[in-house]
Design a protein around this nucleic acid. Structure first.
Lengths: 197, 197
DNA sequence: GGCGATGCGGATGAGCCATCCAGTTAGACT
DNA sequence: AGTCTAACTGGATGGCTCATCCGCATCGCC
């Protein structure tokens, strides 16, 4: 009932569409369904039936990465060091968002085209909530931070890393910004050079 | 020589265009020159002559706020507490970006339509650089932070505050995020609530 | 009041998006 | 194998936004 099992040629075309969409996303081109139809040598109608909107296609492209992220989130829940678990999860989130250009718009969108996307986002969000709660209980993170802040903050960091600067340096930059956010721009007043605390 | 002194009717129209553009920006509508022409009861050509692109109009709308910000920046340079000066300047920057919707896109744009905008951005940037240098010399901020990071980080914070949430709470949220960034999400290990260290 | 420069305005064409339906095809059933 | 039909395909098409261009109106100086 999830999917009527798609005819063979249709499946092939679906694959081709998603694949070129992936390429376009990677090279930074915005997805335009008409354009994709031309590239894949399919009629516009075909593309539009598979993906009613550009968002739907984008979410399909983003799905695997989101799935992977969710899986890593589950793993993070197994870590018994709350601080490390949260930081690791956030780091992976950021890296994914900077590496895969399809993620940023999908994460930022208030409403999703595909139910699966909503589901994945919910999963990720609840993983984040849990990790944050544990970290807070352990006294590792500031108390005024709610789980509702997590997504915006991550989007903000990713955005900051993407605003300027060459694509090659983005990963590097994003990591630096995340560290800055975690540790604060201010030097902690209680200890000098933190060194390897 | 900057401006040939503009005929009276032209000046009036210019004013009307900018004014309604301001309104549109405030209500969150994206600027479309054709649309504006209709609202102001002017021909499209008129609008396009005054502002060759939507960006040019947007920058014109943003200019006063940028000017004000630059002025406040100059004041901040007079403050003899480097930490407070930097923090205050950053806070004002964020507040401006959240309050005035025209600022975010202008700040984020890599290239400007109006020379005046470039000039203003350069001023702001060098004020930021100076404030940051002083704060760093005073040992208040982390050393790995360069002035090139300032703009992206501020854009990131503003973006984070704007992604979700009702417009009314944005200022509040933005302030919280800035504090979080300055002080760090982690509880500083050297002071404050030692609790369950 | 006349004249040249300047500004005005909308008709226009280029480009994108999304729909719709006539034609085709895959694969289930006999 | 042959037939049937539901599903897939493709592009012609209309609605829309954008930006240009040029004949006409208006301003303000003499």
């Amino acid at each position: 009932m999830t999917t009527a099992p798609l005819r063979k040629d249709a499946a092939r075309n679906w694959e081709r569409i998603v694949s070129t969409a992936r390429d376009l996303v990677d090279e930074g081109t915005p997805l335009q369904l008409n354009d994709i139809a031309r590239r894949v040598h399919l009629g516009v109608g075909t593309v539009y039936r598979h993906f009613p909107t550009a968002e739907a296609l984008l979410e399909t492209v983003a799905a695997p990465t989101l799935e992977a992220l969710a899986a890593q989130g589950e793993q993070a829940l197994a870590d018994d060091d709350p601080g490390r678990a949260l930081a690791g999860f956030l780091r992976r989130t950021i890296e994914a968002q900077v590496t895969d250009a399809s993620l940023a718009p999908v994460s930022a969108a208030a409403t999703d085209a595909l139910p699966r996307t909503t589901e994945l986002k919910r999963t990720l969000s609840s993983v984040g909530t849990e990790l944050l709660a544990r970290a807070r209980d352990a006294g590792v993170v500031r108390a005024d931070l709610t789980s509702a802040d997590l997504v915006p903050l991550m989007c903000g960091v990713a955005y900051a890393a993407n605003v300027h600067g060459a694509p090659e340096t983005r990963l590097e930059t994003a990591r630096r910004y995340l560290t800055a956010l975690l540790e604060g721009l201010y030097v902690s007043r209680g200890h000098g050079d933190p060194g390897p605390a």
